[in-house]
């Protein structure tokens, strides 16, 4: 029961934060709302017994990714004058209509599906902990792991090529 209450509480916080994040004028405020959204998702991850991922969510998303956002916003010194507003009203309305349609689509898809997956015997002990994640990561998922290392290399090189100091 406590699980249910916590879930509802943080689901509501996540939705409110997400809505605020995409509607605020000032990107810094948006970023802070997004942090709140990510952290409430981390709580839900804990409820779902994804302990390691909850930690990563806080450290990587709330900690690194959004810090980087805030850092760039500050670096560019965005003043209100050059901060973009919404697009015109027509597009806003279209966005709203589209949102409702897509959401309805999702809802009917979920409703028409029996979502009983094979989890009769409960979760194994240690499910979602760092050990279980690590074991899989270095056995079955070793190929994607190697690939991700190249992807991160691309990101580093890319950031340097694009934003690094001009060397003439």
């Amino acid at each position: 029961m406590a699980e249910q209450i916590l879930f509802y509480l943080f689901a509501v916080i996540a939705i409110i934060s997400a809505l605020s994040a995409v509607t605020r004028k000032n990107p810094v405020v948006s970023a802070v709302w997004l942090v709140s959204c990510m952290c409430s998702l981390a709580v839900i991850y804990v409820l779902l017994e994804a302990y390691f991922l909850a930690a990563v969510q806080v450290i990587v998303y709330a900690g690194a990714v959004l810090m980087l956002f805030v850092f760039v916003i500050m670096l560019l010194n965005l003043r209100t004058g050059i901060i973009g507003q919404f697009r015109n009203l027509g597009l806003k309305f279209m966005g709203l209509v589209l949102t409702v349609i897509i959401l309805r689509q999702f809802y009917t898809a979920f409703k028409g599906t029996s979502l009983i997956l094979g989890n009769a015997g409960g979760l194994e002990p240690g499910f979602g902990e760092a050990r279980a994640v690590g074991e899989l990561l270095f056995t079955r998922y070793v190929y994607p792991l190697e690939l991700i290392s190249i992807l991160l290399l691309v990101a580093i090189v890319g950031a340097l090529v694009l934003a690094g100091k001009e060397s003439s």
């Binding site: 995409v22 948006s30 589209l98």
Partner: peptide, 8 residues
């Protein structure tokens, strides 16, 4: 779709 601020 609705925002025009790149960062958002």
């Amino acid at each position: 779709i609705t925002r025009r601020n790149i960062i958002i």
